[in-house]
Design a protein around this nucleic acid. Structure first.
Lengths: 350, 350
DNA sequence: AGGTAAATTTGGATCGTTCCAAATGCAAGG
DNA sequence: CCTTGCATTTGGAACGATCCAAATTTACCT
């Protein structure tokens, strides 16, 4: 059931109480800044606290009070700068509110996600912020976290019986609208054969982005060839590898809306390998606006999602939920902003 | 003293005990997989645990056993991909060992660092992994964490009376050797006027990298002009801003060893603004090998530090320390590897 | 059947804090 | 001097687990 470590002798309330000849209860009152204790006693106690180097044992207090001062943050991919920024935002707000962040990263494995959730639950977090791994199952997650602990779903919907989890709060990006913006931009640049490149069809964010793309294409009266919808693992490596699929048959696209920035950057490399210069011979857009997007060659047109602000927002949402545990669940969809850079050139006339 | 949240009624040991008519002690034995309990009893208890949806309260157990199952991870900049990868590596190993990661990010503020450490200490972590904020003071940190909790210092030395903290373990990159490798490489390419660009002189890693640079220059019999040592905040923005300093007087350098990749990428932009093409008119190297380095224009010659592996290593070191609390403190210096890419061209002949 | 050893089970104290009802001290008023 | 009222202080029982010594049951021998 997991490892633990003995911990050296610690100074406790009783030590302080004994040290300045008052009861434990009084020391406890001092610690919590109660107005009931006499000014003079308080000074004496505080002096003794300093003298003995007392450190508060919040676990014991939480046990007695049946409270919690931690929030679990479970991410499918911490190494992704998008989630790293998100985590920084979460921790910033939680820290200010006096909560501590219990971190869990799942490396996009649903098995590990369940294990991590189980392990974190044993520490009794007051709430959970979860960016689920791809292909996760709502009921299994629900079984792992129970119905007592509020959960905020971030970034992705989970698979399975979602109805069972309709009391979860949700914070999503406006994927569909973002992809539509990108597609409309490419159309306005003059492209007619536009692909949607990358991502897993099984992920909700990919479906939404595809939907936005299809929307825009249809609204412009443009066709969508089957070979223009290319799946790949949403990282740079596989994005390079799948590049050739775009050019497999005759009506090759002249532009692509990519699932995200990592995929777009990978596609750039793939294009180079085919002798095409992205931003001149082929136009493309990303999603996320990771730091790299501004400095790639060419700089990448993409959708800004301000992950740090999202992290702050997620933390605030979960804190609000703790305030009003029984108000109806809230779904928040945050708008994204199109950043036009050099990668989304007009079509190249050969 | 921080916020807390009430937590719903939970199923406890006693509920299970009552539910299948055994004592709390027996249930506890079952939970810990003790061989003492009868096969049949165990089955009955396990069934009841499932039935009632019991979740283990590790805080209570830790209190009684005087143990801890968490490790604090305090980082000066989570949003930096280097540290994000590091954190992912740490969490991976800690999770496998049954520990949970308490996250704290300080945003490079020493005041916040002390506050975060104080808050985390109240949760009684078994150990601490700390990448200190710049300009921190050893004695203050020591006061915040006490002498009972083992601490692993990562990446940077702290200022102040280091002697007071010589029982801390340390894990550093071989900054000096890395910078020497980069400098020697530029010299081998034919450069003679080479600058060291970026970083804060107050940070130990910057000092070490400068030392490696100076070493290599001296060994090659090359001069180091004062104007070739340019300080800047180690991010892209300030790196762009300070670029002109390199060309302030006559003997402008033809190459630069940069403090890290962010600075190098910023310098590239700055060079562009001056009409210089990095990788052709000016050579430069970075440090870290962030993802971006491989795909910048030109791709950046840099030093690979494999942050995820460092994270795993840090976690392993702290776990080892928990095994043998009193063995003598260990300082680990990990080698770095030079990755030659296009940015470190030979000198341009105009 | 009786006795002993082994296998199981169990109450009660405990970890470090908070809660609560009750006790104490103190000054003013009659 | 004795109430009364207010400001302080305080024991002891929780919280949910674990430890330990002792109690109970079961198994095995003669």
């Amino acid at each position: 059931m997991g490892n633990t470590q003995p911990v050296g002798r610690k100074v406790t309330l009783s030590d302080i109480a004994a040290g300045c000849d008052v009861s434990r209860a009084t020391v406890s009152l001092v610690l919590r800044g109660s107005p009931l204790v006499n000014k003079h006693t308080r000074a004496r106690v505080e002096e003794e606290l300093r003298r003995q180097g007392y450190v508060y044992n919040r676990a014991a207090a939480n046990l007695r009070r049946r409270t919690s001062s931690s929030i679990a943050l479970v991410l499918n991919d911490l190494a992704n700068p998008f989630f790293a920024e998100f985590a920084a935002g979460v921790d910033e707000v939680l820290g200010n509110a006096g909560f501590v962040t219990l971190l869990g990263s799942t490396g996009e494995s649903t098995a590990r996600e369940l294990a991590v959730l189980g392990s974190l639950m044993e520490h009794g977090p007051a709430g959970i912020i979860l960016s689920p791994a791809e292909g996760g199952d709502a009921e299994q997650i629900l079984a792992a976290v129970g119905t007592q602990t509020p959960l905020l779903l971030f970034n992705r919907e989970v698979g399975g019986d979602i109805a069972a989890c309709d009391h979860w709060d949700r914070l999503f990006l406006d994927n569909q609208h973002g992809a539509r913006l990108a597609t409309e931009h490419l159309i306005a640049q003059g492209h007619r054969r536009i692909a949607f490149y990358g991502g897993h069809l099984s992920s909700s964010s990919c479906q939404q982005r595809r939907a936005g793309y299809v929307d825009a294409m249809r609204k412009a009266g443009l066709p969508v060839a089957a070979s223009w919808m290319v799946e790949c693992i949403p990282n740079r490596l596989d994005a390079v590898a799948q590049c050739d699929q775009l050019f497999a048959d005759g009506a090759a696209p002249t532009a692509a809306v990519c699932y995200n920035d990592a995929v777009a950057l990978g596609l750039m490399l793939g294009l180079h390998k085919r002798g095409l210069q992205p931003g001149r011979d082929f136009a493309l857009t990303g999603f996320d606006d990771i730091a790299e997007a501004a400095v790639s060659a060419p700089p990448l047109t993409t959708l800004a999602v301000t992950p740090r602000a999202r992290g702050r927002q997620a933390a605030e949402l979960i804190l609000q939920r703790l305030q009003e545990p029984s108000s109806s669940p809230r779904q928040t969809i945050v708008p994204v902003q199109l950043l036009v850079r050099a990668s989304s050139c007009p079509p190249h006339v050969a």
